[in-house]
């Protein structure tokens, strides 16, 4: 019978048993949740991809090729950025950039920008942000329609020099109280279009090459 104060021997046995139980429990939880979490992440990306495609393409059975592209200047990150090229029997239908807007108010803003083959924006959505609640979070389409003003814009419409917020004599609305956030997003969309213009053929070639190697996934 152990005293109320316990024994070191008993304590050691109990600690070892608990450590083993804890190890097993965490391991089992990981095994059980791993696939589900990955599926959740995929579902989220696919749902998001759909949200920046032109309406006619949403839900279409397109082939998605994932490229990882590093361009700190235009895509906003020192790390490789996901670029999805969506094709229909080899014909490019859309390109979606997981661009980063590095100069958000509190932190970088992760965006998803859909671009049609002719270079027009088909949609912009925020994936992750840490902008101020009630001010900068208006970039979230759940809070306001601000993001929708980029739909069907291109580098020629408005002209390149007007790709700025109205406060800087540009042609895009500014979110009142969140000028920094607005500037960051407008610049990121503009840079992504610049990247697309400069590298379109290269992107399509790389996507075709990757598709030929079978590195594609059906969303």
């Amino acid at each position: 019978m152990a005293s109320a104060e316990g024994h070191w021997a008993l304590t050691t046995v109990a600690a070892a048993a608990l450590a083993a139980a804890a190890f097993y429990a965490v391991h089992a939880a990981y095994d059980w949740s791993d696939e589900r979490i990955a599926a959740n992440e995929r579902a989220r990306v696919v749902a998001r991809l759909n949200s920046v495609l032109e309406p006619a393409l949403r839900g279409r059975d397109l082939t998605t090729t994932l490229l990882a592209i590093t361009d700190p200047e235009l895509l906003g990150s020192e790390e490789p950025v996901d670029v999805f090229v969506l094709t229909d029997r080899g014909a490019p239908m859309a390109t979606v950039f997981a661009t980063v807007a590095p100069h958000g108010y509190n932190a970088a803003i992760d965006l998803l920008i859909g671009v049609a083959p002719i270079g027009t924006v088909t949609g912009v959505r925020v994936v992750r942000h840490r902008e101020t609640q009630g001010l900068g979070d208006a970039i979230d389409t759940a809070k306001s329609d601000w993001m929708l003003q980029f739909d069907s814009k291109a580098l020629t419409a408005p002209p390149l020099e007007l790709w700025a917020v109205d406060q800087d004599k540009g042609s895009f609305d500014v979110i009142s109280g969140a000028t920094v956030t607005s500037r960051a997003v407008v610049a990121a969309v503009k840079n992504t279009l610049l990247y697309f213009e400069q590298h379109r053929d290269d992107l399509y070639a790389r996507a075709a090459e990757a598709a030929a190697r079978g590195r594609t996934n059906e969303p």
Partner: peptide, 29 residues
Amino acid sequence: HALKPAARLPIALLILAALVTVIDLFSEA
């Protein structure tokens, strides 16, 4: 009754950490 008082805190933390990790993974799934 099994534990020495000096061992209680680390063992409580072990239990808490394992539990919370499981709940974290479960809720993410």
